[in-house]
């Protein structure tokens, strides 16, 4: 393997990791504040990506408008299911919410396929050639994807650390009882949490759709890698989710020359297992939304 190959693999791994990072962030936020693994995360992405396609099909050619449409749809579906399902399950065992979220995932996806069918969709985007630096190829679209992901993360961290609502989220994550005692109204905080989660999913779904294709199983298939990234980084740690996702992406791409493209997914899990054996709470474990 030459240095050029290595660089290309690193780039691919980073981009794939950043794609996973957004749903992983959404997962870890819910995990930290609402305290259950939300299996519907992937299907929020799918619904939002289809909303983006819908906006484009409606005549608005601009990918920017499509993105806004997707974010609105993502936030909406996330809030609807919070109000309907997850609010009613607060205070119950996490497994109850987890199983309900599997139900939400099935329900959301089947409603989608009932109306839009199973055909694949693609976003209308002009295709551009990659920049070639002596064999190291860099795609402009990948740069946009990476930049967008980083901006979204920066905004999220700003929200969590610089705004009152973010501080309240972190307070609830840290100690729900204490937060209540301090007069934090968790209902309003949770509503904004789910809006943010929906927006993150939507952005992830859009970016995935731009890079690959939009199909009804888009998000569902991303769920397990996103779970793995969250666990690797440590549950409830936003930084951990991002680092975990990028690490898993790079590790699995770098392993391709050695184990082939099928086992690269297994390599990601091996890495996860190793880390968990050394640090049972993940890389940034226990730092629930506090750093």
């Amino acid at each position: 393997m030459t240095l050029v190959d290595l660089c290309n693999l690193l780039i691919n791994g980073t981009i794939e990791g950043l794609l996973i990072a957004l749903p992983a962030l959404a997962l870890t936020l819910v995990m930290g504040v609402a305290r259950f693994p939300n299996a519907a995360t992937g299907d929020y992405m799918t619904v939002a990506a289809y909303a983006g396609i819908g906006v484009q099909a409606w005549g608005a050619a601009s990918i920017f408008l499509a993105g806004l449409g997707a974010i609105a749809a993502g936030a909406a579906i996330s809030i609807i299911f919070y109000l309907w399902v997850f609010r009613a399950l607060r205070g119950r065992a996490p497994v109850a919410s987890l199983v309900a979220s599997i139900g939400v995932a099935f329900f959301a996806r089947s409603m989608l396929t009932l109306f839009v069918g199973h055909d694949q969709q693609t976003f209308n985007l002009p295709l551009v050639r990659a920049w070639n630096f002596g064999g190291v190829r860099l795609l402009p679209t990948d740069l946009y994807v990476a930049a967008l992901a980083l901006i979204a993360m920066a905004l999220l961290f700003a929200l969590l650390h610089l705004t009152p609502i973010g501080r309240q989220m972190r307070a609830i994550a840290d100690n729900p009882d204490l937060a209540r005692a301090c007069g934090i109204r968790s209902g309003r905080v949770l509503l904004s949490l789910w809006a943010v989660v929906g927006a993150l999913c939507a952005l992830g779904g859009m970016m995935f759709g731009v890079k690959a294709v939009v199909s009804p199983e888009l998000g569902w298939e991303l769920l397990i890698p996103a779970f793995a990234a969250m666990i690797l980084g440590g549950i409830g740690s936003p930084i951990g989710a991002v680092v975990g996702a990028v690490l898993l992406g790079i590790a699995s791409e770098l392993s391709v020359p050695f184990v082939g493209p099928s086992y690269k997914i297994a390599v990601a899990f091996l890495l996860l297992l190793l880390v968990l054996l050394l640090r049972p709470r993940g890389l940034f474990g226990k730092a629930i939304l506090s750093r």
């Binding site: 298939e221 791409e253 082939g260 493209p261 099928s262």
Partner: peptide, 20 residues
């Protein structure tokens, strides 16, 4: 020759192997 997995966001690494 390469055998690739379904449902991946990108096949650049696989393609890179082939094109090399």
């Amino acid at each position: 020759s390469v055998v690739y997995e379904p449902n991946r966001p990108s096949y650049r690494t696989e393609l890179q192997q082939i094109l090399a």
